[in-house]
């Protein structure tokens, strides 16, 4: 019996650690392949336009990811502006209207929305916005992404508000304050880190999504700030250039992966975790 036990234990360690090994392998690959490209092209990577497909015929092209970086920020910004008010208020509904059927339904909807395949948002927004507007755009992409971020923000907000003990909320009520004043002023300092942490997690999730943007955000070699223009994003660029046989485009896919993971997503998650630590009381 003890021998069998040790065998199983060893197996668990091997399986678990190899899963983590693969994770480190993925992160390592991004670092090893992406960072040199970023260093090679330097600051130009963040300011230059994306090289056009026929660059070979026009001498040395300028190499950059600026349109994809700006596009990612635009799309995320639009998604954030839409999903924060809806997600936050839905979270308040779910957490604070405990006994109402509407709150139960809202919770059900939010936890279902989280599970909907993200490409769905891309297809739906394509029919809803891209066709009537005759053009993909940052706006359409942002709206598609917001559908993915709303349930995250709602659920994180609800969790955070639920964690505040009822006696603390009653303490505020007993001072003759309205419930809304208690929620948004008295316990603000208590819930803010948790809510911000949730929003950052949602942003990290949104920043990496490509499926909802493939058919909604379009593609743009140049930087634009017009939300009705097509934009490229880092995630879509990784996909489109990833299949290419051109060495330069593959390099750009690595660089985009590096920026996406190490410059955008991991810092967002790190800040989010620190926030949650602070939130514990």
């Amino acid at each position: 019996m003890p021998r069998l036990y040790k065998l199983w234990l060893a197996l668990i360690y091997i399986i678990g650690l190899s899963a983590l090994g693969v994770l480190l392998w993925v992160l390592g690959s991004i670092l090893v392949n992406g960072l040199p490209v970023v260093l090679k092209y330097g600051i130009g990577l963040f300011t230059n336009n994306i090289p056009p497909p026929m660059f070979l015929f026009f001498g040395k092209p300028e190499v950059g990811l600026a349109p994809a970086i700006v596009g990612t920020l635009m799309v995320i910004g639009i998604a954030f502006a839409i999903s924060l008010p809806i997600g936050f208020t839905a979270g308040i509904l779910i957490a604070e209207f405990k006994h109402s059927k509407i709150a139960e339904l809202a919770e059900e909807l939010a936890s279902t929305l989280v599970e909907v395949p993200t490409i769905t948002a891309g297809i739906s927004i394509y029919w809803l916005l891209v066709i009537p507007m005759h053009n993909p755009s940052a706006l359409a992409g942002g709206i598609a992404l917001s559908l993915i971020m709303i349930p995250y923000i709602a659920i994180y907000t609800a969790e955070t508000y639920r964690k505040v003990p009822m006696v603390v909320k009653e303490g505020g009520l007993a001072l003759g304050l309205k419930y809304s004043t208690v929620l948004f002023k008295v316990i603000r300092g208590l819930v803010l880190p948790g809510v911000i942490s949730g929003v950052l997690m949602a942003l990290a999730k949104g920043a990496g999504e490509a499926a909802p943007l493939l058919f909604t955000a379009g593609w743009n070699d140049k930087v634009t700030l017009n939300p009705l223009d097509q934009v490229s994003t880092l995630s879509v660029l990784i996909y489109k250039f990833g299949f290419s046989s051109q060495e330069l485009w593959r390099e750009l896919s690595w660089a985009a992966s590096f920026i996406l993971v190490f410059v955008i997503i991991l810092p967002l998650i790190a800040i989010s975790k620190i926030m949650v630590k602070k939130h514990e009381f």
């Binding site: 208020t89 509904l93 604070e96 909807l109 939010a110 929305l113 909907v116």
Partner: peptide, 16 residues
Amino acid sequence: IALFGFAGLIVAVLIL
């Protein structure tokens, strides 16, 4: 506020 959140969720589901 709660109604706004609820409407937002419903609209999101409908849009999807």
